[in-house]
Simulated scan of single mutants.
Amino acid sequence: MNTTHDAPELYPRGTARRSVPGFPGLRADATGSIYSKRDGQRLKPRVVGDVLCVDVSTPTQRNKPWIPVAILVARAFVARPRPFYRHREVIHLDGDRKNCRALNLAWKRAKRTRAR
Rank of each mutant, 00 (worst) to 15 (best):
D29K: 06
I34T: 10
P12H: 15
P21A: 05
L93D: 04
A102W: 05
V51N: 07
K44V: 12
V90F: 02
A74W: 12
A74D: 12
T3V: 14
G25F: 06
V69P: 03
S36D: 00
Y35R: 04
G49Y: 05
E9W: 06
T4V: 12
D55T: 00
T60C: 02
T113E: 14
R13P: 00
Q61P: 05
E9Q: 13
I67C: 01
E89R: 15
R86A: 07
D94Y: 08
A7N: 02
L43R: 14
V54C: 03
Q41C: 12
Y35I: 09
R18W: 02
L26W: 09
R109A: 11
S33I: 02
G95Y: 08
V73K: 01
N99D: 15
Y11Q: 05
A76N: 00
R88H: 04
P45C: 02
V48R: 08
R27F: 03
I67V: 14
C53K: 14
R42H: 00
F84I: 05
P21V: 02
P81N: 07
K64I: 03
A110R: 11
C53F: 09
R97Q: 15
R42C: 10
E89K: 12
R109W: 02
V69T: 15
G25M: 06
H92S: 14
V73Y: 06
R27K: 14
F84P: 04
V48E: 01
C53E: 11
C100E: 05
R97M: 11
P59T: 08
Y85K: 12
Q61A: 13
A7E: 08
R112N: 10
G25A: 15
R18N: 07
V73L: 05
G49T: 09
W107V: 13
R97L: 11
D96N: 15
V69D: 02
P12I: 09
A30L: 06
P45R: 07
P68D: 07
R101A: 13
R109L: 06
W107R: 05
I34L: 05
C53Y: 04
G95A: 12
H92K: 09
N63T: 10
A102V: 08
R82P: 08
R27A: 11
A30K: 14
R86V: 06
H5F: 10
I71S: 14
K44E: 13
T4H: 14
R46C: 05
N2Q: 09
N63V: 01
A28K: 00
Y35C: 05
V73H: 03
P65R: 03
D55K: 06
D50F: 04
A30N: 07
R88M: 13
R109Y: 01
Y85Q: 06
A102N: 11
I34M: 08
K44N: 08
R88C: 04
P65H: 00
I67M: 01
R86F: 06
R42P: 03
R18D: 01
R75G: 00
I71Q: 15
